[in-house]
């Protein structure tokens, strides 16, 4: 489904985001990527939908080679690859329904979306997406009137409205409280199971990663340093990814001890 062969990403400033990544992700997998901040998790995810162009190697999504230089091809790719973000990225001043309909943009003619005149079947799809995340009663509310967890579920509905083959989630629960975070991840997990959508999630929380993932990928310095089924992602294995103890931050520094 998604295949990285020796993919490098070098940012314009010269920073190397990914180093020789080789990775194959099968259809319907629920993959969680772990690693410290700056390890290249976001870069990996954003390479898949072309938000970050890769600079060498080859990346295929579905049957198509991702071509960061072709605007049209990238747009077609993005229409089948949905993405949700840490900060939800909803347009807070428009209604929940209109936010979800942004997911239909790629298959809507320009004049229709300019006037906000979506086809009936697009609206139906948007409503079904909202129903799937249990938030359809808020369809006509302004997005700003929703709580964080609700906003993230609207973002999931927007992605579902794209009818995607892949869902990318970049730290989707990092700004949510734990119970809400679990609810959002449960939604993603359920959608992954029910619709067979390949799902790739960046997470900081190990317990959450273990609870929801089929497969865990560990990253450090832009490289994939761990890749295995969730059962193999033991504390020892993750400490190896982090190159430090999981509780390192808890230990009191020498100078402060008395």
């Amino acid at each position: 489904m998604i295949r990285f062969s020796n993919v490098d990403v070098v940012y314009p400033g010269g920073f190397q985001g990914l180093k020789g990544v080789d990775l194959t992700i099968d259809k319907g997998e629920f993959v969680v990527i772990v690693g410290l901040s700056g390890a290249g998790k976001s870069t990996l995810i954003r390479t898949i939908n072309g938000l970050v162009p890769y600079t060498s190697g080859e990346l295929t999504v579905g049957d198509e080679v991702v071509d960061p230089t072709s605007k049209g091809k990238i747009r077609r790719l993005r229409s089948s690859v949905g993405m949700i973000f840490q900060s939800f990225n909803l347009v807070t001043r428009i209604s929940v329904l209109n936010n979800v309909l942004v997911g239909r943009c790629s298959s809507t003619p320009a004049w229709r979306s300019l006037l906000g005149w979506y086809r009936a079947e697009d609206k139906e799809l948007a409503f079904q997406s909202l129903e799937r995340v249990g938030i359809v009663d808020k369809a006509y509310n302004r997005a700003s009137a929703l709580s964080g967890g609700q906003q993230q579920r609207v973002a999931i509905a927007r992605v579902l409205a794209q009818d995607p083959e892949v869902i990318l989630a970049d730290e989707p629960v990092a700004s949510l409280d734990p119970p809400t975070a679990h609810r959002v991840l449960q939604d993603l997990r359920r959608i992954n199971r029910e619709l067979g959508i390949t799902t790739i999630v960046n997470l900081h929380h190990l317990e959450m990663a273990r609870k929801y993932a089929d497969r865990v990928i560990g990253m450090r310095g832009g490289e994939v340093v761990f890749d295995g089924p969730v059962e193999e992602a033991t504390d020892a294995a993750i400490e190896e990814v982090y190159q430090r103890s999981l509780t390192a931050g808890d230990a009191a520094p020498e100078s402060a001890a008395h």
Binding site: N49, L51, R75, R76, L77, R78, S79, V81, G82, M83, I84, F85, N89, L90, V91, I94, N98, V102, G103, C105, S106, T108, A110, S113, L114, G116, A155, R158, V159, Q162
Partner: peptide
């Protein structure tokens, strides 16, 4: 919001509008 619209395949005009 611009990034999320771009990530869902919206064109420049659609991004401006929504």
């Amino acid at each position: 919001p611009l990034e999320s619209a771009r990530a869902s395949g919206a064109t420049q005009v659609q991004m401006i509008r929504w």
